[in-house]
Design a protein around this nucleic acid. Structure first.
Lengths: 149, 149
DNA sequence: AGGAAGTATATGTAGCTACAAATATATTTG
DNA sequence: CAAATATATTTGTAGCTACATATACTTCCT
């Protein structure tokens, strides 16, 4: 569906202005797609993102700061986000021995199990992205990177 | 900056998975850009979006519903959003005579004045989008529309 | 006409976000 | 080495979002 129809706007000043809107709209469209799949599991997009970052670290620990650097949405309260994950038994938090200011965050077995269960989401989203080819996706990635400079 | 560097992830499974993340990241990047400019005026992106929709209607009235259909981020509580705009004296809300369920929303002179003052934001953003050409923006718009199907 | 169903908007509420400030520990510097 | 500065995380708070439900009016049907 053309962006003109999505927001019922007949025309735009120029392609740049249209892109500004299209980009925000499509970003939300993707987030909502993922949120919809996570909802039944009581996870938010951010919590899911953190879990995947933790899994990516293998057996190692990660600090709060380095989690926030790796997040898609670099929010300010990763602290409380991790609280939630610990409360749910999906992650653990211990003080780092070298630097007692830092926290060592790690995913639990239960967290890994949940993520495994959720891996179908990636497949699902790929299916919902079937309108474009791998080559077009590459082209989009290049243009988006270029846009941000 | 490449998305790999933005979120410190060395590689992705494939271009589609990368696009999923790149798209959410870039959407937030654009929103944040706008939010930054609006902040000094105490406006949120959504309030700004509604004001622009109201201005787009010229002298006519718009219903709450049709505002929400035109919003970039179709949130569920446009009602309270309009409360805020009315409280600030930027819009007015009156009961529609044909259908007393509907509200007639209209931008005030003050609202128009503020929007005029804010029009520099569009220019500013265009400047921040200077990394890509009009042709590339068109290409992006086409690909984004295609992505959403 | 009178009740059922539909539509437009508003409201209650829990949880989330952004921003600023606080706390605790580490490092640098005179 | 003590004070100043820097870094890592947490916490307080106001305002925002999503979802479910309520309210008020209109239309449809018999």
């Amino acid at each position: 569906m053309r962006i003109e129809d999505e927001i019922k706007q007949k025309q735009f000043e120029d392609e740049i202005q249209k892109l500004m809107i299209n980009q925000m709209f499509t970003g939300k469209w993707v987030s909502d797609l993922i949120a919809k799949h996570l909802k039944p599991y009581g996870l938010t997009n951010q919590q899911y993102n953190v879990l995947r970052i933790l899994r990516g670290q293998g057996n190692g620990f990660v600090s709060v700061n380095s989690i926030s650097e790796r997040m898609i949405d670099k929010m300010s309260n990763v602290s409380r986000l991790i609280d939630k994950l610990c409360l749910k038994g999906l992650a653990t938090r211990t003080v780092n021995h070298q630097d007692r200011r830092q926290m060592d965050i790690k995913i639990t077995e239960e967290g890994l199990k949940l993520l495994k269960e959720l891996d179908y989401i990636q497949k699902q989203i790929k299916a919902e992205f079937s309108n474009i080819s791998e080559a077009e996706a590459r082209q989009l990635n290049e243009l988006l990177d270029k846009l941000r400079g």
